[in-house]
Design a protein around this nucleic acid. Structure first.
Lengths: 210, 210
DNA sequence: AAAATTAACGACCGGTCGGTCGGTTAATCC
DNA sequence: GGATTAACCGACCGACCGGTCGTTAATTTT
């Protein structure tokens, strides 16, 4: 019952390749990824990559899963530590902006980038991205509904509408932080969400002040 | 002083190529554009394209200008017919959403697509896109300031913040209309902007109702 | 110690990419 | 009517693309 050193080695390179692939994809896109360049960057051979993934598309799909893991680890799981309700909703938005702010990825956000890249290009990659976004949407809308049911949101609140607006503020933070100056952008992204949540909250003091 | 038929012919093909390039770029991006495919689609030869643009980058830059023209014609100029102030601001947002809704371009929005594509890729293309976005930002913020100065927005209104939020709602409409169902998305994009403007308006009746 | 398994490699393939070059055709100018 | 000009084309180029294949080196199993 010892650890197989060969497999451990494979796992290590696989992880290294995927981490690099996620990062590069935020710059040049999932399709812009060239297997040759990726291999050279990592100091491995191109054919070595094919030992782990049988095609470029397979590697793209694996890259998506890796990006999802990163996002869960840095954004979702920490955010869920906040108390149920409107504070958890805010926490999710805040952690998300912080993740962009901290520049974990050179392009800011893997999913924003590749969603735009594949949103009108049918295929397996697009389908997987759509699934992931559906899950993410359910998470956000679920948290909003939780907050509504526990009486922390005004009765007339449209939780889907709210989810749309939060998504908007975060999504445009990714882009605008690269096109205009980053600091004001992140500030606007936070303030927009906080103001919106405060107008819908039955107890605005649950949220940070201006 | 008659019209030179040869030059007129050149202008016609140039316009046809650029229109097609704008449309295709919303699907595959400005870099995803292949000159060979583009030429084949239009029934011309690849080398014929090089007679009009000396490199791919030159064609990309020309494509950006063409997209700008389209956007001015379908969105900006019609929107500016609305009376100065908050109604003009709303009109700009509404025309923008309508432009996406009408599916003039297969990918929804040229600028959203290529901004994401080039936002972290230094070069002439990126620089031009940044310039264009700066002009667009000035337009929106200028309209907001106009509305504020004429007393149609509450005194405490942060016009830059408002511009950020409007941009967010429109930007995410492009993406979410492809990932989720389109109709609710456009509805959310309009309602978010209208609600926000109404809370900031000194006279909400200037804006359409729910 | 031999056999089996796994990661990784170098050489190579057909195809496509952006780009060049020497024409051809047709409209315009003198 | 001949020279000029502009649009456009077909053949071709080197570079790079995703992908295949036979092999080597290291580790584990028997």
């Amino acid at each position: 019952m010892t650890i197989d050193g060969r497999i451990a080695r494979g796992d290590r390179t696989r992880a290294a390749v995927l981490d690099r692939a996620v990062a590069r994809a935020t710059e040049d896109g999932l399709d812009g990824l060239s297997l040759g360049q990726l291999a050279t960057d990592l100091g491995v051979s191109k054919s070595g990559l094919f030992a782990h993934w049988r095609s470029k598309e397979e590697l793209q799909l694996a890259t998506i899963e890796q990006a999802r893991e990163q996002f869960l680890e840095h954004v979702v799981r920490p955010a869920l530590k906040a108390p149920r309700g409107i504070r958890r909703l805010w926490s999710l938005h805040d952690h998300r902006i912080r993740f962009y702010e901290d520049r974990h990825l050179p392009g800011g956000c893997f999913f924003a980038k590749v969603q735009f890249e594949f949103s009108v290009r049918p295929g397996t990659v697009r389908d997987r991205l759509t699934e992931h976004f559906a899950m993410w949407s359910e998470l956000v809308e679920g948290l909003a509904q939780q907050a509504a049911r526990s009486g922390e949101l005004r009765d007339e609140t449209d939780t889907r509408q709210l989810a749309y607006e939060l998504e908007s503020f975060a999504l445009s933070a990714v882009l605008l932080s690269r096109i205009k100056s980053p600091e004001p952008t992140y500030h606007y992204a936070r303030r927009a969400a906080r103001d919106r949540l405060r107008t819908l909250a039955t107890d605005p003091d649950l949220l940070p002040e201006a």
